[in-house]
Amino acid sequence: MIGFFAAISAVISWTFACSIWRRESENFLPRQINIYKNVLASIFFLPVLLTISSFSDVFSIFVLMISGIVGISIGDTLYINSLKIIGTRKTLSFEALTPIIATTLGALSINEIYPPKVWIGSFVVSFSLLMIVCQKTFQKDDSRETNLLGILYALGSVFCAVLAALMSRVILISSTLTPLQTTEIRLLSASIFLFLIFKKDFLYLIKNRSITKQNHLSLILSTLLGTNCGILFQQIVFKFLPIGIGWTLLSLSPVFALFISKREGDEINKLTIFYSFLSFIGVAIVLI
């Protein structure tokens, strides 16, 4: 049950944080938002480093650093680009692919054996979320080329997220590192990576006086929700649940995003509600 409640908490945190990041993407470049939130989040959890024994967990720390760079530095930058182009709900809906991808990778790479109900439930969730994507509910008049770019960004972020989650899962079940410790290692490595590449963007955010207090407050709130809490809850999920089951639960973000859809010009129809309900049935199949 710990993994289940952690997954739902992560989903809620991500959904509201994504809405803020999308709004702020009108004022900042996606990479600027990503470096801002990761540096700030790693500072919030900095005291955690004092509890880590670097000598006894060198390999684990190295794997987590790679996981942070792939999943947070690269994946989140692609993710925020997608938020800016195609919106919160549609970006989150591309997580329709993650239950099947994660379940397959878990079975092939770390020999996690899943009963038939997990495969069936993962497929139902993936199908339901894919149908939500297919609903023509997004009212914004975007060009086909722009939408395609947003879709590519979303798919890239999904691939990075699953790969990074797989690495995290391996370390969480094979080392003594806690979810909080792995969260800070991933955040810090992602922050250093982004700072080395986008140093000018970070300095711009620090020195630019045109950035309002409201902008900073919004980014701080979204960082606490989506980065600190979101990633910590995610690590707890992968500590207690196999990656396939964990990602099936974490993929429910599009359903929770329905609550903020009208604010983004996204009109919800009856089919969208039906497929959202069907996705919960898929999760129930997995958990029963």
Rank of each mutant, 00 (worst) to 15 (best):
M1I: 12
F4G: 04
F4K: 14
A7P: 05
S9W: 11
S13P: 11
C18Y: 07
I20Y: 01
W21M: 13
W21E: 02
S25K: 01
S25C: 07
E26V: 07
Q32M: 10
Y36T: 06
K37Y: 01
A41E: 11
F44T: 06
F44P: 11
F44K: 11
S53L: 15
I61W: 14
G68K: 10
I72S: 09
S73W: 04
I74H: 04
L78N: 01
Y79W: 03
Y79M: 11
I80G: 03
N81P: 09
S82F: 07
K90I: 07
L92A: 13
S93R: 04
L97N: 00
T98Q: 14
T98Y: 08
A102D: 05
G106R: 06
N111M: 14
Y114A: 09
P115M: 12
W119M: 13
S128P: 01
L129V: 01
I132Q: 04
Q135I: 04
T137F: 00
Q139T: 08
D141H: 03
Y153I: 01
Y153E: 07
C160S: 08
A165S: 04
A165N: 10
A165H: 01
M167A: 05
M167G: 06
V170G: 00
V170D: 08
I173C: 06
I173R: 10
T178V: 03
T178E: 14
T178K: 13
L180W: 00
T183S: 13
I185H: 13
R186C: 14
L187Q: 13
S189E: 14
L194E: 02
L194K: 05
L194S: 04
F198A: 07
S210G: 09
Q214A: 06
L221H: 03
S222K: 05
F233W: 11
V237P: 11
L249D: 11
L252I: 08
L252H: 02
S253K: 12
P254R: 05
P254N: 03
A257Y: 02
K262P: 05
E267V: 04
N269C: 08
N269Q: 07
S279A: 12
G282P: 12
I288A: 12
